[in-house]
């Protein structure tokens, strides 16, 4: 009797550990569900549940224009959701569009430049500078909830992404 209970308990613990580990690996290496709220990514993401895939982050395939979930550089417990504007070595215009004199900065090695789509109400790399690539947790690829906004994500409304060196030189 006792032996049977013990065996059952052990088997239950074993299955719990096994499935817990599988869930951990899935969330860590494939993707996770994230609730995004706050005004910084309006109108692209407004209080949505999104699916963020982690494969391209592990393969270093994050590109300009992707929306990423990253750890905040000032508090690792807080996640931020922003759009990648520049990768390492890119030239970023840091002045506001109304300024007459443009100021530029270069994104250092191993860093990315993140900005929210809502320029008026977003704390991002324009405040704290480029953040290290390793703080990126995943790339947002699907909006899941609410259902009427289900689908992929739209392009950046801010026209801040500089595609090639020639484009940035002309403006």
């Amino acid at each position: 009797m006792f032996r049977r209970v013990l065996g059952k308990t052990l088997r239950f613990v074993g299955y719990t550990i096994q499935y817990g580990c599988i869930v951990h690996c899935a969330f860590e290496y494939i993707g996770e569900f994230v609730v995004c709220f706050g005004p910084s990514m309006e109108p692209t993401i407004v209080n949505n549940v999104v699916f963020s895939e982690r494969i391209s982050r592990h393969l270093y395939k994050i590109q300009k224009g992707d929306i990423v979930i990253a750890k905040s550089p000032f508090d690792p417990h807080v996640n931020i959701c922003k759009r990648v504007i520049g990768l390492e070595g890119d030239k970023i215009c840091t002045s506001s569009p109304s300024d007459f004199f443009k100021t530029h900065t270069y994104v250092p090695l191993g860093h990315v430049w993140l900005e929210g789509d809502n320029h008026m109400n977003s704390t991002d790399s324009r405040n704290y500078g480029p953040i290290p690539y390793a703080l990126i947790r995943g790339r947002v690829c699907l909006k899941l909830w609410p259902l009427r906004s289900f689908g992929t994500l739209s392009e950046s409304p801010t026209k801040r992404i500089i595609k090639a060196q020639s484009d940035s030189d002309s403006d």
């Binding site: 550990i17 580990c21 951990h24």
Partner: peptide, 10 residues
């Protein structure tokens, strides 16, 4: 594999 990866991660 999942158990090893989890142990190494956590």
């Amino acid at each position: 594999v999942p158990v090893t990866v989890t142990v190494l991660d956590k």
